[in-house]
Write a protein that binds this DNA or RNA. Sequence first.
RNA 1: GGGCUCGUAGUCUAGCUCGGUUAUGACGUCGCCUUUACAUGGCGAAGAUCCGGUGUUCAAAUCACCGCGGGCCCA
Length: 773
Amino acid sequence: MEPKIAEKAWDPKLENAILKKWKEEKLYDFQLSDNNYTIDTPPPYPSGRPWHIGAASHYAQIDMIARTARMSGKNVYFPIGIDRNGLPVELYTEKKHGIRMRETERGEFLELCKNALDDLEAEMIQIMKNLGLSGDFKNYYRTDSEDYRKFTQETFIDLWKKGIIYLATRPNNYDWVSGTTIADAEIVYEEIPTKLVYMKFITKETKKEIIIASTRPELLCACKTVIVNPNDERYSDLIGKELIVPLTNSEVKITPHHSAKIEFGSGAVMVCSYGDQNDVALFRELQLDEVIAIGLDGRMTEVAGEYQGLKPKQARTKIIEDLENANLVEKIEDISHRTPLSERSKTPIEIVPMEEYYLKQKDSLEKMKKLGEEIEFYPNMHKQILMNWLESISIDWPISRRRFYGTEIPIWYCNECSEPFVPEPGKYYRPWKDKCPAKKCVKCGNTEFTGEERTFDTWMDSSVSPLFVTKFNRDEEFFKKTYPTAIRPQAKDIVRTWLYYTLLRCEKLTGEKPWSEAWIMGYGLDEKGMKMSKSKGNAIDPLPVIEKSGADTFRFWSASEINQGYDFRCSEQKIESTRKFLSKLWNVSRFLSSFPVIKSGQLSESDKWILSELDKLISVCKEGYSKYNFFIPSTAIREFTWNIFAAQYIEIAKARAYGIGFTDEERDGAIFTLHKVLSTILKLLAPITPFITEHLWQTLYSQDSIHKENLPNIENLDDMSEMTQLLSEFNSKVWNEKKQKELSLKDSIKIDVPETLNQFKKDLIAMHNLESN
RNA sequence: GGGCUCGUAGUCUAGCUCGGUUAUGACGUCGCCUUUACAUGGCGAAGAUCCGGUGUUCAAAUCACCGCGGGCCCA
């Protein structure tokens, strides 16, 4: 009989036609019902080209979550969004156009960023579509749209009214040349020659000299403590004692701290506000009172006494001179020091306290821990990242940024008395260009205002994603039926940011947790296990890989190669080699397509055996799917299809399926079983490889989409798995013996079927053309 | 520098919870074979200091401790 499937291999080019058909049939369009399963899809950030292949793999797996839920009878709401706020696009735009943000008119700069995002986003959307994501592309959202930003501002205004937002001063990276705070991402480090000055401090009690080495002697006036390593025996009897600071003659305590390196300098380190980031951490940890020694003009302040008005470098030269004159210097070493510089101005940054907005979180930590406990994590080990983070939070969340491409903080200040004005929600506000909606200041009656120029931290936007997609404060019925959402899938590197902030914000706004499950994926590394980056040149562009190998190949690679939650290595060669399995599946289907699909037949013992193995496979797959672990079903299906079904059962049943030497009833048993197994495999595999399964399903079994089917159920058949190894051992024995005797597989041979396989005797004799005994 | 996390052939992985066979399977590599629906196939081979060390034990990939290495986040 001619096979219905003529082509000898799966052609990934067929995927386009299938995509088109799905779109025409509106197969994945979402209609609200009572059985909704909402995915809090991560909106990817278009930060550059190419998109990370690990991210593409990540989205392929999120789609498997959606398809698994759909084939489990859920009404799946799978929104698609793009995160477009934040620093990376600003840096990308500056580089692309050779401009600087602060030297460009704000509106013009925003336009350039927007265009850059549009280009990058188009590529990401294309990849997501090509991968076969069954998401709601028709309504895809952007976090920088007027609607989304209005929503972000509304949630801020709500929290402002609840009194959860406040202003406070904290140390910031400050580039006094360009007059701005800068983000950590804008700092570059350079080895710069400098002087390490060994200064003489005096113990208050015994008047003993203690030598302290520092590269920043001009900060003596801001010195608040001296730290020594608790294991440093030289100082163990001085811990807790007072020291007199040279020149300023103020008194500071000696504190033990592990960050003091015994071998650096004298082992004792002065802690000043602020010489470096370690000082910031220590001031916070030891709760020291900060002294502002360097002002926003980049010069020493009045606390520096006679050095006031000098730049830090000038003050350093002068203070070294004065220390030497007072015989307070033991020695000076010329060293090379890793110095943080502003990427823009290439001058050393200073750490200067500045006023920023904060969102209260410290008093919610217990509640967050409780919610964290309630949420099911996949895999469970990654819950620890959240719990450890909750343990270590020591300050409230700073939410304002001195950047342009973000949601504007909706506040105006009275020009007379600085009283802030926060507008009513319901409109998208841009205080840097919009007129203040208030006529006059409620406090002093003045009518002139200045708009806030700062924007929100980008997590302020993305942390309300589950509320935005469920139409919180927009559509009450929709919200009630979709929130809390079912699951938050995301990568593990942003558990402490996106996952935590979402938990915090949604709880503050709704009183409920945003999801009951969190699915955490590992990180995509290169083939040697190193992080991929454009500068290292080891980044793999996913688009050509998917175009060449096909989405299903890429998806099956992702499922079968990545252990849930663990980091994974990406290599094109490995992805391409996964295609062989799809080829196998195709050819199994091609062979079966030469037999009619029939409803029943008389089952032989071999049929019962393979059906019992199939039953086991269903059970393993469903267990894996229930944990959103696609490694389990993909590897189990490959193993079953290749090594049991194709290699053993099809060979055993082939002769009977052709009907030579068997009754019609016996023949039909084989044909029925072949199709039953294949159709079940297709359904089990549909969430992982939606294209090839759809094509084969529609060619062989139905006009309708396989993606409207439910996953198969187990039938609790008798376990015959002890037969599997016996059968394959016997078959191998016969094949090998024929090979040794240089016989064709069709040739007859005299081998006795062992007692243990007696029940399969008729099939085995026909299969191997055994001389009957 | 701190916290967390992981470590089984070149790569992915089973086994580890609860110690006991020759450490599972796959990809890749190499060799042989036009032979079945499939050479995009079949058969076979090589390939592991189970990260290292110490301890507990008759017995350790498995348990405990100390290291080392990768990754992530924070600084």
